[in-house]
Design a protein around this nucleic acid. Sequence first.
RNA 1: GUGGAUGUAGCUCAGUUGGUUAGAGCGCCGGAUUGUGGUUCCGGAGGUCGCCGGUUCAAGCCCGGUCUUCCACCCCA
Length: 459
Amino acid sequence: MANMPSIPKGTRDFSPVEMLRRKHIFGTIETVFRKYGFLPLETPAMEKLETLTGKYGEEGDRLIFKVLNNGDVWKEVAPELKAALAKGEEVHPGKLATSLSGKALRYDLTVPFARYVVQHRNELAFPFKRYQIQPVWRADRPQKGRYREFYQCDADVIGSKSLLNEVELVELTAEVFNAFGLQVAIKVNDRKVLSAIAEISGQPEKVVDMVTAIDKLDKIGLEKVQEEMRAKGISETALATIAPLFRLHGTWPAQKQQLQDWLGSVPLAQEGIRDLSTVFDTAGQLGNATLEFDPTLARGLDYYTGAIFEVKANEGSLQSSIAGGGRYDDLTGIFGLKDMSGVGISFGADRIYDVLLELGKFPAELGSSTRVLFANFGDAEALHCLKLLRTVREAGIAAELYPDAVKMAKQFKYADDKGIPFVAIIGENEMKQGIVTVKEMKSGEQRAVKEGELLDAIV
RNA sequence: GUGGAUGUAGCUCAGUUGGUUAGAGCGCCGGAUUGUGGUUCCGGAGGUCGCCGGUUCAAGCCCGGUCUUCCACCCCA
């Protein structure tokens, strides 16, 4: 239709049914967060542009949604830029952008959190544990499972270097997905190991390139990974040096031994292996979470420095990660606060939604909320129903009165559409006799009960 | 940001080499049933064919642009 209104690219409306399911996801995650001692925090949808730029790499900067300044933006453009533009000269878009936009929509929850910690450092008790469930925005090109506005559910603890935090987050993650009844793989690696590999390769400055290439192993295969690394200027000798990484096999104890034999002489690697051991051993003794060591797990964000996690569903068709996180030693450093190590995990609610929906893992009772609908026969009957409605609601049962005295068929259809299990019918006769005709929609059966027995009839 | 597909009724889709008033199923509304939904029967409404422009005597169909959705890349939750 020509004049049908619509919403911006990559954004979505959520219908009541969808919202009930989304609330189920947020609620489950939030309950677990609270259980582990995390407290809620919210930050503004917008941050100052300078807070966000340069934190997500070159690619990330491009994906930040910038907000146009209010007022006469043109007036704020520097005279020399205007002159250049008037002459038809090329102007660096970034330069122009800073005059036109001073704020941007948040790209993730971690950087605003770091900003918050630095800004409020004197008021916080460290280690500071907070959770944050809010939307973030990315100017990415949308695809399935990839939106321009989506929610992240983050839990971070900052101001503690203890690996117990990693263990707790792993436990927390296992508990969340257990609550959803979803089989997942929790993959773990350590950036220090990856950095050590880059070190011995002789091209330590290429860590980021190596890491992003290695991360694609399960998707594109070894040959293409090596191809990409060559394209990024990584030498054949370096490739040969890091090759053992792709030959690690077995599960953790065996993998650990192979890492030791290979990298044991590199101090950074020793540290990484030791940390991984601590996490695996401690989590293993607790026995709640099953971890997999994945030496090729890298994760894109360059602020990670220690442990990194990623969660993928073992069922369903979605291959991308549904949660991820890691340790960052110096995230607050860029805002001027040194020595603040933190570790966090982020759950991708929208992707979890898609997986649960595909697998039919949403609880059935999410569908309905109202338990009984009172049919409306007119003013006198409606008033009578309002009184009964109150007692039903006081018993904690969701109930509603159809607002208009329209014909019965329409009122029953409403109950049917909305999945309301019972309809209470109180016409002139029922009212006079002090009874209620209760119809159970599913079976179609109906019976008359005394007003006082209504609650029993609809349980 | 790069490359490629897509768009016809609220939804899912037909629509011949360009040729009169653009169709179906589902849904919606009304009636059969003035106190009964989900089944059945009958009737009805609803589309300037995503939008803008061009070619043509004539465009849903051809061409250009633009937007949407989807796919691959990039990157990521």
